Amino acid sequence: MSDLLSAFASLVERLADLLQPLFATTATAAAIVLCTMLVRLAIHPLSRASARGQKARTRIAPQIAALRKKHAKNPERFRKELTALHAREKVSPLAGILPSLLQAPAFLLMYHLFAGDRMAGHTLFAAPLGDHWADALAHGGVFGPAGQVYLVLFAVVTGVAAFTYRRTKRQLAAQPLDLGQSTPGAGAIAKVMPLLSFATLITVAVVPLAAALYVVTSTTWSAVERALLFREEAEAKPLATRA
């Protein structure tokens, strides 16, 4: 772990050195954003596979609902038929999980990197990268020099969260969790799921600013990436409606 952390820290430092002529005192912050984008670019093929899997699951949702209704009294038969349907349609139920699983180690590395003393002396404008929002509040308050940096981050996160909230609501409307069947708790989960996009606000508020930059960049990338990956599907629906 220590070797990997040192290698990651070295990468950030080298990028910061390269970006120094352009970003001056904020070069390290720019390097963090660039590192985050490189991580997300590396797992983009998996994100594309995840999007294809989600589109396929949406396509076969009526078939799954029919199978569940047909084998309502025989859960074992339903599971076998569902597995066969997934195999026939080449749909993996786990495809959407892989990008998130691969991001977790990167976030842990970033957090350990930024929680130590390596960020000492590095800032994003007036806000030290190793400090938290509580530190900004203690030194100048909400509208102080460091507090204003956080206000901008919170504004970006809120905008991205609102966009993701609306998209998740539309997706759940198109593909309900219960697939047309009465499933205990499905309604409550469907109401809570879109709100989870706003949880990023809490993360930004409690982690070091450097880690918050990673979270904000990654979340924004996710929103833009999913919008582009599902753009063709969104454009196809109005055409189908007019037809």
Rank of each mutant, 00 (worst) to 15 (best):
G53M: 05
S222D: 09
S47F: 01
T219E: 06
A188D: 07
H112T: 08
Q148C: 13
G185Y: 02
P62V: 12
W221A: 02
E13D: 11
G53R: 09
K191Q: 13
A126G: 06
T183L: 14
L102R: 00
R167P: 03
L239K: 14
A174V: 05
L151W: 07
R48A: 14
L172I: 11
L98S: 03
L124Q: 04
I97L: 13
A190H: 05
A190P: 02
P99S: 06
H71E: 10
F163W: 11
V204D: 00
L213M: 12
T168E: 01
H112R: 14
L201I: 11
T183D: 14
S197I: 07
R68N: 13
K191P: 04
L4W: 04
L85V: 11
P21D: 07
P99Q: 05
L151E: 14
E235M: 12
A104Q: 06
R14Y: 01
R166A: 08
P99M: 04
M37V: 07
A65C: 13
K90P: 12
V91I: 10
A106Q: 03
P93G: 04
P184K: 07
E232M: 02
L98R: 01
K237A: 13
L98E: 01
H132M: 06
A223Q: 03
A173C: 05
K55N: 12
T83A: 15
L101S: 05
Q20E: 09
C35D: 01
T200V: 13
D131Y: 07
A174N: 09
S50I: 01
P208R: 04
T200A: 15
Q63S: 14
A174I: 08
P105C: 09
R118K: 10
L18H: 02
H112A: 13
G187N: 12
K70R: 15
L11P: 00
A227F: 08
A7R: 12
S47T: 12
V215I: 12
V149M: 13
A120E: 15
L15E: 02
Y150N: 09
L102Y: 00
K90G: 11
W221M: 01
M1D: 13
L177G: 14
L228S: 12
A212T: 07
L179R: 08
S92V: 11
R166F: 06
A188M: 14
V157I: 13
A188S: 11
I97A: 10
V142A: 15
V91G: 10
D135E: 12
F230C: 06
V33L: 10
E81T: 07
A162T: 09
F8C: 06
L41Y: 05
F23N: 00
A173T: 11
A84L: 15
G147R: 05
